[in-house]
Amino acid sequence: MSVVLVRVDQRLFHGQVAVGWVPGLDADHVLIGDDALAADAFGCEVMTSAAPPELTVEVVTIAEAARRFGVLEGRTILVVRNPAALLELVRVGAQVQDANVGGLHWKEGARRFLDYLFVTPGDIAALAEVAALGVRLTAQDLPGNPKVDLNAALADGRLAFNHLSTRHP
């Protein structure tokens, strides 16, 4: 096995990933592809140093994550911060077939699609591009919760920005 999950999560490595997805997928490695974090030594230390001992957490650039995508060993969860980062990951060569969109919290200009998924027009455009490149996209915050087919939501207009709620926390 290599990459067992590609996930878009604004919080990158955090409780839901460590306690929900890692045991659920029997993962032993979390690879964070994030250019800004990779350039921030203290931020990397904060993100990686407190990981449970049975787990390796690494931070690399998106380009490096794409380069290693096909040659990783073990069971890796690859996390990127947002849909634009996922699009870049795919564009620079990662052969992503499925991606999980698991956590985009509210920010200025975003609208609610799910309680854990607030998207901007830019997020939606990036997801649409990723889908057009053949990636199957699902929204799911935790392994035990329902999956939502984002390709279908993009296709039938449920994920159109103008149809989304402006309600936010």
């Binding site: 919080r11 490595f13 955090h14 409780g15 460590a18 306690v19 904060v46 993100m47 407190a50 449970p52």
Partner: peptide
Amino acid sequence: DLVFGSCAQSSRL
């Protein structure tokens, strides 16, 4: 709470 959680990470940052 969780040392590897987002709350601890934001607090440390």
